[in-house]
C-alpha cells in the first residue's frame, strides 16, 4: 500500500483553502504552515511570472511533505522519530524527536519540515481542529502527516475536503484501479526534484 496524492495544477487557482484547511484541522501554531500554495516564478505569493513584453503567467504549486517512497529524512533521523509507515505515510513522532534537525537538512523539499523554534502560540484562545491530534511541542520538528489522525478514522486528509477547484485526488498508488493511479496513467504529470531519487508520493498533473 502506498497512499498518495495527485494535484491537478491546471485546476488549482491558488485560493489557499487547502492551506487553511490543513492549518485548522491540525491546530497549527502561529507561522506554521504544513501545506503552502507556492507561486511559480513570482517573487511573492500570488505574484505572476514573466514580464510586460512576453506576457505573464500565474501557476500555483501546493507544497507539503511529499511522503517519498524513498525518503531521505527517515534514514537521517538518529532516533527514528520520523519513519515511513506500512501504508506509505512518512510519520513524525513528536515525543521521540530530540530536535537535532538532521531531517530538515536531509529533506530536499525546502520548507516542508518545520521546527518549533519556541513554545507554540496560537492566534485563538481555544484549540482548533480534531480532538485526537497530538499536541504541538516546542523544539521538535513537525510536518504534514497526511492527517494521520483522520486516516485512522477512514477519512481523507483535510486538504482534500474543501478544495473548491476539486484539484486534489487521494488514494493508493499501488492499486492500479484507484483514482490516483488511473489519473497518472492517463495524464501528463511531474514529481518534484526527481533527480534526488526520493520518488515522492505526491504527483502534480501538468
Amino acid at each position: 500500500m502506498r497512499l498518495g496524492m495527485v494535484i491537478d495544477t491546471r485546476r488549482c487557482f491558488g485560493c489557499q483553502t487547502c492551506a487553511v484547511a490543513c492549518k485548522s484541522a491540525n491546530n497549527l501554531p502561529n507561522n506554521n504552515w504544513w501545506n503552502r500554495v507556492l507561486t511559480e516564478g513570482g517573487e511573492n505569493m500570488d505574484c505572476p511570472a514573466g514580464d510586460y513584453e512576453k506576457g505573464y503567467s500565474l501557476t500555483f504549486l501546493p507544497t507539503s511533505c511529499q511522503h517519498c517512497d524513498n525518503p531521505a529524512c527517515t534514514r537521517a533521523c538518529p532516533v527514528g522519530a520520523t519513519s515511513k509507515r506500512e501504508d506509505g505515510v512518512v510519520f513524525q513522532d513528536y515525543d521521540k524527536c530530540i530536535g537535532c534537525r538532521m531531517c530538515v537538512a536531509a529533506c530536499p523539499y525546502n520548507g516542508v519540515r518545520i521546527f518549533n523554534w519556541e513554545e507554540p502560540e496560537y492566534y485563538l484562545d481555544f484549540a482548533l481542529g480534531d480532538k485526537d491530534i497530538p499536541a504541538h511541542q516546542k523544539h521538535v520538528v513537525e510536518k504534514c502527516t497526511f492527517c494521520a489522525h483522520r486516516l485512522a478514522q477512514g477519512k481523507t486528509p483535510a486538504c482534500m475536503v474543501l478544495c473548491p477547484a476539486r484539484a486534489r485526488f487521494w488514494g493508493d498508488l499501488d492499486d492500479p484501479e484507484s483514482e490516483v493511479s488511473k489519473l497518472i496513467n492517463k495524464r501528463k504529470y511531474k514529481q518534484l526534484l526527481t533527480d534526488r531519487g526520493t520518488n515522492p508520493s505526491v504527483y502534480y498533473l501538468v
Binding site: A19, N30, N31, N32, W33, R36, V37, L38, T39, E40, G42, E43, N44, M45, D46, C47, L61, T63, A105, P108, Y109, N110, G111, I114, F115, W117, E118, L192, L193, R196
Partner: peptide
C-alpha cells in the same frame, strides 16, 4: 553554502517566527 541555494526557488510562504 548548503542552505544558501534553495532546491525549490519558490518564494511566497515563509514559515516560523
Amino acid at each position: 553554502g548548503g542552505f544558501q541555494i534553495p532546491n525549490m526557488d519558490l518564494p511566497g510562504v515563509t514559515t516560523g517566527p
